[in-house]
Design a binder for these strands. Structure first.
Lengths: 192, 192
DNA sequence: TAAAAAAGAATGAACATTCATTTTTATCGT
DNA sequence: ACGATAAAAATGAATGTTCATTCTTTTTTA
């Protein structure tokens, strides 16, 4: 008898195919057969890795969210000064969205549609804890405005998503200066 | 013989049903039969008002986008000072998103998925012209930062969408103070 | 009374999932 | 080192359902 040893490459191929196809057609307009074809497996094989279509997309969402937050918080140190920590994280997030365009696009779609289970959505939120911690410290130290966490998030991080969406759609191109302006605007909007 | 005189109420019921169901299940997960049922018409009747499902959702999108911008720019005067015009429009947008929660949610979904035809998307963008005009004037007068229109949009208007999304999801509640803070953050991030 | 509007049932295609087989893999005795 | 073999992994085809759209008939309107 053999041990449970399903190919990790196949799973990754399935995840990549799902992201790509869902980005281009949406969840329900993407047949399992197409995902299978793009990942070079049989449709039936998907069901060895995931329970069903909903489970597939939930898992892909959590995978991508993890990858995103790991990237965003890489080298983040709980003890760095607030302003410095914020700048670092903000710029890591920008990097991620510029480099991993497909993943970022996928997250945006998941966060704005009823595509993902509520439970997985909640689970995904937890990954942002380090950023919340930073904000709380910033507020305690009086460095940033004493406002709701969601306001902080909305004004400092969320606009990035819109910028990247526009960039992806080819509406305009962001350069280093644009990025720096955007960072300044982010900081201006939340600093005390 | 009768003149082309299809019931305007039926069309409106269809539009409302589409918004509601798409918000709750997504475009492709919403059958025409369900839209028909909620609007109290036969499925076949939908095809008297719209060419097909895609045409239905495109038209609903443009209807809602128009309603949104009409509301946002109501009483807007080309000659009011930039700062005042911006504040008025910003607050009208906030009002709309608070009052017309379903419509706002629907627009967010349309803007973040491949649900809408590219042509309709472009068409929808045109409605924002008055806001662009205001910004151009603001830049000429040196009142607001000389940065990309999309950056302006991202930092001053777009975060609202996120706030409202959070509010819709019951994650937190926005009050008058929160709204005022949000407006200040918006203005801080773009003013010169 | 004739055209427009609406209806409900019928049609056919698309799709998620399952089923019956085949192929691959890892371990075993020799 | 080598088949042998049994479990795991993978497959392609089959199944049954769901749904957009069309067709034929009925109802409403002018």
């Amino acid at each position: 008898m053999a041990k449970l040893q399903k190919s990790i490459e196949k799973r990754e191929a399935l995840v990549r195919a799902t992201i790509h196809l869902v980005n281009n057609s949406g969840f329900h307009a993407t047949p399992m057969s197409k995902i299978a074809k793009m990942a070079n497996v049989s449709p039936a094989t998907i069901y060895l890795y995931f329970e069903n279509k909903q489970d597939l997309v939930n898992k892909v969402y959590l995978d991508v969210k993890s990858k995103f937050t790991e990237y965003a918080f890489q080298n983040h140190n709980k003890d760095t000064p607030v302003a410095e920590g914020f700048e670092k994280i903000w710029k890591r997030i920008a990097d991620f969205k510029l480099k991993e365009v497909e993943e970022a696009m996928f997250l945006a779609q998941c966060d704005n549609t009823p595509m993902i289970d509520e439970a997985s959505r909640q689970e995904g939120l937890k990954h942002l804890q380090p950023l919340l911690d930073l904000w709380h410290r910033g507020k305690q130290e009086g460095i940033i405005k004493p406002i709701s966490d969601y306001l902080l998030y909305a004004y400092s991080i969320n606009p990035l998503s819109f910028l990247m969406l526009m960039q992806q759609r080819g509406v305009f191109k962001i350069d280093q200066d644009g990025l720096e302006d955007a960072y300044q605007a982010a900081w201006d909007s939340i600093k005390n």
